[in-house]
């Protein structure tokens, strides 16, 4: 139990003094996972709408792919992006390996299927009469999409939360494509792993506690948005 108290004290000390670049690491984590989630939303929500509403060959297969993609192992996403971005890889010339951008690429691969699959499921669950209603109102194609997304906004927020949860908790991809570089690509999860390998379990747990706090704070904020959207 001593270790737990030590961890809490260490977490408090890190937070109050800002030692170990804890503010930098926390801010960087928020920026990287926030960007990944935003990009995944931009790709995932329209894809989810298309998967649910479109009628095209291979649609079922694509839905199955999106559903399977919700289980995308971070280490596979990381390896895939690494092989593309290494100097010896196809896009090595862009010199993006071991940068925050590389982490965003990998995390987008992880979160986009999650957001697309849940969005598609939410839209498919809407009552069929709704589509007739909207079309009867004479909505254009964009308006139609917008209204459908609006109707499904509560589960779509769940989709965003799930996508965010997937990227803020992953360590395999960040470690591989980011390299855990101090001051650059070190995020809360990779910092915790490094402290564990150094045998500094108190500091590692301190980073873990901060990570949990960030996750809870973001989830609470999104839930507040969701609940206020419900009342509308």
């Amino acid at each position: 139990m001593d270790l737990f108290w030590e961890a809490f004290r260490e977490a408090w000390r890190l937070l109050s003094t800002g030692d170990g670049d804890v503010y930098g690491i926390t801010a960087r984590t928020a920026a990287i996972t926030g960007t990944s989630t935003a990009v995944s939303m931009l790709i995932g929500i329209p894809s989810g709408l298309g998967l649910a509403l479109g009628r095209f060959p291979g649609q079922r297969t694509l839905v199955a792919f999106a559903n399977a993609g919700t289980g995308m192992p971070p280490v596979v996403a990381g390896l895939f992006v690494s092989m593309l971005l290494w100097r010896s890889g196809l896009f090595g010339g862009l010199r993006l390996i071991y940068t925050p951008t590389a982490i965003v690429f990998a995390q987008t691969i992880i979160a986009t299927p999650v957001i697309a699959a849940i969005t598609a499921a939410a839209v498919m669950a809407l009552p069929p009469s709704l589509h007739l209603q909207i079309r009867a109102m004479g909505a254009g194609r964009l308006q139609y999409l917008w209204l459908v997304a609006r109707e499904a906004r509560l589960p779509i927020l769940v989709a965003v939360m799930a996508g965010f949860g997937a990227v803020i908790s992953e360590v395999g991809a960040s470690m591989m494509v980011g390299g855990n570089l101090a001051g650059e690509t070190r995020v809360l999860t990779t910092a915790a792993v490094l402290e564990v390998s150094k045998g500094s379990f108190g500091t590692a747990l301190a980073f873990g506690l901060i990570l949990v706090a960030v996750t809870v704070a973001v989830s609470l904020a999104l839930t507040a948005v969701q609940q206020s959207a419900r009342r509308r």
Binding site: V39, I43, P46, R141
Partner: peptide, 22 residues
């Protein structure tokens, strides 16, 4: 109900990617 991602939505995605590239 033939719906494919519309041009404006595509543009939004491209803009997002550009923002990251920059």
């Amino acid at each position: 109900m033939h719906l494919y991602p519309t041009r404006s939505l595509l543009a939004l995605v491209v803009l997002g990617m550009l923002a990251i590239a920059v």
